[in-house]
């Protein structure tokens, strides 16, 4: 199973109700093809960094979709023909998240290892200190 992030921009000229309708419509496209829309994140109206179709603002929405990839093709096709969607971007994130997870676990393991050596070293140092002079310890 692959995890995708589909971000798209809806034209700011569309009505508030139409935006909701469009979002449910598009998520239905994905689910009807057998994918799961795990998250719908509405980033809301934002200024575009550069004009697209002479528009300077847009309504940003992010879908997080789990599927095989075929749904993505259908979803993208639908977005292309929908005039209200002015731009979309699909990113496959499962591999990247896995890589990030690997880094995180590697760091945790490294930290654990260094902590183990440090604690054993400090314990031996304390033992040495205790044997040499006990007044110094507290």
């Amino acid at each position: 199973m692959r995890v995708y992030e589909v971000m798209f921009i809806i034209s700011p000229t569309t009505e508030e109700g139409d935006i909701d309708k469009l979002i449910t419509q598009l998520s239905d496209v994905a689910t009807s093809q057998g994918a799961q829309v795990t998250k719908i994140d509405r980033m809301g109206r934002r200024r575009l960094a550069y004009p697209i179709q002479k528009l300077t603002e847009g309504y940003y929405v992010v879908f997080t979709i789990e599927g095989t990839g075929l749904e993505i093709a259908e979803l993208e096709r639908r977005m292309r023909v929908t005039d209200a969607v002015i731009r979309y971007l699909t990113v496959r994130i499962d591999q990247e998240l896995k890589r990030a997870e690997k880094f995180r676990s590697a760091r945790a393991a490294r930290a654990a290892a260094s902590r183990a050596t440090r604690s054993s070293r400090s314990r031996s140092q304390i033992a040495v200190a205790e044997t040499s002079d006990e007044e110094d310890e507290e």
Binding site: M7, I9, R46, A49, Y50, G58, R87, L89
Partner: peptide
């Protein structure tokens, strides 16, 4: 580069 594509950042 991704952010540029979706107009979050300028080219």
């Amino acid at each position: 580069k991704r952010a540029r594509n979706i107009a979050l950042l300028p080219f």
